[in-house]
Computed example of a mutant assay.
Amino acid sequence: MLDEATRLLTPATPDEVLEILAEAAAAQRRIEVVGGGTKRSVGKVERPELTLSLAGLDAVLDYAPEELVLTARPGAKLKDLEKLVASEGQMLPFEPPRLAKLLGAKGEPTLGGALAANLSGPRRIRAGAARDHLLGFAAVSGRAESFKAGGKVVKNVTGYDLSKLMAGSWGTLAVMTEVTIKVLPKPKTEASLLLFGLDDRRATQAMAQALNAPVEVSGAAHLPPAIAARAPLKAEMAVTALRLEGFDKSVAARVETLREALKAFGRVERLDAALSRGFWAQVREVEVFQKDARPLWRVSTPPASGWRIGEALKGQEGGHEVLYDWAGGLVWAQSDDAQAVRAAARAAGGHAALWRGEAALAAFEPLEGALSALTARVKAAFDPHGILNPGRLG
């Protein structure tokens, strides 16, 4: 199936994926694995000889709304899956972001791509990450061996949670050919409460208090003044937002409980369902940074430490701007100073990845010590010749 003139490969079945990887492994050809291609710019693959596109593996294999389980090929488009489950009053609980406009990509984001990158939207603060909803999968390793893990249950018979290992591996361990995910009922309505004028540290305190209140917050974000002033929000001061979802009466009651809990933080305003949905879509897709070409960093850190990222970057040459999601557990930071961003992330107990910017920089910070050794052993077990997305993770 492979020859010297072949560059782009688009298998239509899992058997074709196995055949491609068998021939590539035998010849030790380096493969770039893509889904919709929307995140190809994040972590450049080193000198790929072949591009394996999973766009042709686009099908829903089984959907059991009564069991809250969906099985699909990895090339299934997120927009199609969301439309399907919405027809049954359900949703993809990890609220996967598209980010195509943010990254200047033209493709359609896929389920496999979201899982491979472990991407989650603002609901992660309550519902968990993408990996928490991946029940099982079928895949072909870099050894050209087909294998399965999990299924329509959370337990793995092998004793290893391979689903969580695959989520966030960016296609460097194996090529998924089938995935089973958990879905959840879609909330009947939502509302958001907004606080104004808080600095980053005070906003973190407000978000923490809200998350500790008995109201089930499903989104918590903070937009500092420079970010809040941008389109589409165009606010006159910093904005801190908290989302509540559920049945009408439940949301109404929890809004009042949360409003009372937050009164020490100043004026509180409410966004009703339509405006709330629009606001959180903007946060999820990082709209405020879509038209800005400066390097953009995705920083993961404990929520209580998120404010330290913005604090550490204040006054740096060239300036900086930050957006806090997941109550500060996810920080999007625009900055030209890679060393400063990564130092700030480490100091806050997290790590930073370059999602848009200078190609010469490694997107993912190199691992060190025991973690580096463990990662190398895992990679060797799944892909000993290093043919799958070589260099993608640094």
Rank of each mutant, 00 (worst) to 15 (best):
G328P: 02
G89N: 01
A381C: 13
K164I: 09
L296C: 11
A273F: 00
A100Q: 13
V286F: 03
A86G: 06
F382E: 02
A344Y: 00
G151Q: 05
L262Q: 04
T375M: 15
I20V: 14
W332I: 03
W332G: 05
T6F: 03
L223Y: 04
S305K: 14
E269P: 13
T71L: 15
V157H: 13
T257M: 07
A343F: 12
D200C: 11
Q316E: 15
Q282M: 05
D58N: 01
P14M: 02
P109D: 12
A281Q: 11
I227L: 03
V217I: 07
L162K: 06
K79C: 09
E311C: 05
R201E: 08
A114E: 00
G319S: 14
M237H: 09
G315V: 12
E287V: 14
P187V: 10
P232W: 11
V17Q: 07
A370Y: 10
H222I: 06
S372V: 10
E321P: 08
A139P: 08
E245A: 12
G151W: 07
A253R: 07
K148R: 15
N156D: 14
G36T: 03
A252T: 02
Q339S: 03
E285Q: 03
P74D: 05
L2A: 06
M1L: 08
E66S: 14
L92H: 08
L388W: 10
A360E: 14
G89S: 00
A206S: 06
G350L: 03
A360H: 14
A191C: 07
G128T: 10
L271I: 07
P366Q: 09
L211K: 03
D161R: 08
T172Y: 02
E190N: 04
A105W: 04
A293K: 13
A220C: 13
A167D: 01
A312C: 12
A5F: 03
R243S: 00
T177H: 00
K234Y: 08
T51L: 04
W355K: 09
T301C: 13
A345R: 15
N389T: 07
A274S: 08
K291Q: 12
H385K: 15
I20D: 06
E88H: 15
T71C: 13
V268R: 04
P187L: 09
G113H: 02
A26V: 11
G171L: 02
S335Q: 04
A25V: 04
A203R: 03
L162G: 05
G35K: 01
H351K: 15
V140I: 13
L111C: 08
G159R: 01
L81S: 09
